[in-house]
Simulated scan of single mutants.
Amino acid sequence: MSPQQTGLSQALGIRAIGSADFDRRILEAGDALAVVFVWASSCFNCGVAQRELLAAADEVRALGLAWFEAGAHADPELATRFVLHGTPSFFFLHRGFTLGRMTGWRGLDGLKIAVAAARTKMGS
């Protein structure tokens, strides 16, 4: 199930992104840390991640991220670009540079750790 279908896109302001507009959309995020949530409709843990993110929407919004989402099977070019090993995957980017990734859902605490690690790289 896509973030649009779960209400997650509205709760977090997640916007769809694809290989055709990827670089432009990431640059439009400006100084914000961008996170690309790559999901698959057949992925059980993607649904778990979506439900937990939605349940903690206020806390997730407080992280100040620019959220994007892409379906892994709908855009194989994007999946290949990031050497996708599984879903869900979260890629952290800033001004066009990939700062990190989190493959699998490690809960909200895992997301916060990944965000902090990416933000550390933003400063270097």
Rank of each mutant, 00 (worst) to 15 (best):
A11W: 06
A11C: 12
R15E: 15
A16Y: 03
I17S: 02
G18Y: 00
A20I: 12
A20L: 13
D21Q: 15
F22I: 08
D23V: 07
D23S: 11
R24F: 01
R24V: 14
R24S: 14
L27T: 01
L27C: 00
A29M: 05
G30H: 11
D31I: 09
L33D: 11
A34G: 08
A34W: 00
V35C: 05
V36A: 10
F37W: 05
V38I: 14
W39V: 03
W39E: 04
A40E: 09
F44V: 13
C46A: 08
C46G: 03
G47M: 14
G47D: 14
G47H: 13
Q50C: 07
R51V: 04
E52P: 06
E52M: 09
L53D: 11
L54E: 08
A55V: 00
A56D: 11
A56T: 05
A56F: 00
A56C: 01
A57E: 15
A57S: 14
D58S: 11
V60A: 12
R61E: 04
A66N: 07
F68E: 06
F68G: 02
E69C: 13
A70L: 10
G71S: 15
G71T: 08
A72V: 10
A72N: 04
H73N: 12
H73M: 11
A74W: 00
D75A: 09
E77W: 14
E77M: 13
E77T: 13
L78H: 06
A79Q: 06
T80P: 01
R81H: 06
L84F: 02
G86V: 03
G86Q: 03
S89K: 02
F90R: 05
R95I: 04
G96E: 13
F97R: 13
T98L: 15
L99K: 01
L99P: 05
R101C: 00
R101W: 09
R101P: 01
T103N: 10
T103R: 00
W105A: 11
W105N: 04
W105T: 06
W105S: 13
R106W: 09
G107W: 10
G107F: 08
G107S: 04
G110K: 12
G110N: 09
L111E: 03
K112T: 02
A114W: 03
A114H: 05
A114I: 01
V115D: 04
V115M: 07
A116D: 06
A116Y: 00
A116H: 03
A116G: 06
A117S: 10
A118C: 08
R119L: 10
R119T: 06
T120D: 12
K121Q: 14
